[in-house]
Each structure stands twice: as C-alpha cells, then as structure tokens.
Simulated assay, not measured.
Amino acid sequence: MKSNLQELVKELNGMVSSGQLVDAAEKFYAPNVKTIEYDGSVTEGKPATMKKLVDFVASIQTVKKIELLRSVADGNVSFSEYILDLDMKDGSNVYLHEIIRALWEDGKVVEERYFKS
C-alpha cells in the first residue's frame, strides 16, 4: 500500500475527478469514517456513509463538471477544492464550490468535513 499521503490524495482526487465517487469512497474510506456536512450533520461508519453517497449518486441525471481546482496534503490531513455542476433527476441543478478536508490514518480517510465556498 502506498504510504505517501500526497500519492494517496492524488489517486483519490483522480478517481473523484473522473466521476468515480463511489469507487473512490469504497477504496479510501476507513471502516470508522465520519463525514460532516456543511450544516454540521454527521454520518458515522462506512456502511451509513456509503449508503448516503450511493443514494446521492443515484439521484444525478447528468454530471456536467467535476473539476479539481487545487489540493494540498501535509501530515495526516488533506484539503481538496472542487467545482461540481450536476443536473439532478428531479430537474434541479446542484452547483457546488466546495473544499473537502480529510483526516487520514493508515492510508484511509477517517474523517471528511465539507465546506461550501
């Protein structure tokens, strides 16, 4: 397994940028992962986190853009800034400019916090 955090983050961001959101989460989330949304709501554990992600991805009609703007990794933390432009099956559009802060342990993400820009 790769131990260099910068390599892991590059691989994760590459998967996300190419639309492989679920595969990236499956590969990189630790069993005890916790995600924290913009509003402070928390999802704990990989099964609950994966279900939430799978449900979100299933609600997407068209991915117009997933663009990584920049990323940095240091110690056990990484930050990735993205633009996402998604047409949803309900007819709405989701446009996000977000920063994802990830905490890593043993090559896996144990916590992600999402910030809207």
Rank of each mutant, 00 (worst) to 15 (best):
N4E: 10
N4M: 05
L5C: 05
Q6R: 11
E7T: 07
L8G: 03
G14F: 06
G14L: 04
M15A: 11
M15S: 06
S18T: 11
L21D: 06
V22L: 13
A24W: 04
A24E: 09
F28M: 04
Y29F: 12
P31N: 10
P31C: 07
P31F: 06
N32H: 00
N32P: 01
I36V: 09
I36G: 01
E37G: 11
E37V: 03
G40V: 03
S41G: 10
V42I: 15
T43R: 01
G45N: 03
K51R: 11
K52P: 06
V57C: 06
A58S: 15
S59P: 11
I60M: 12
I60D: 09
I60P: 12
T62F: 02
V63H: 12
I66S: 13
E67K: 13
L69S: 03
R70G: 15
V72E: 13
D74R: 06
S80N: 13
S80I: 08
E81N: 07
L84H: 15
M88P: 07
M88I: 10
D90Q: 09
D90M: 08
G91M: 05
G91P: 01
I100Q: 11
W104P: 02
W104R: 01
E105A: 08
G107S: 05
G107R: 02
K108R: 09
V109M: 10
E111L: 00
R113F: 00
R113M: 10
Y114A: 00
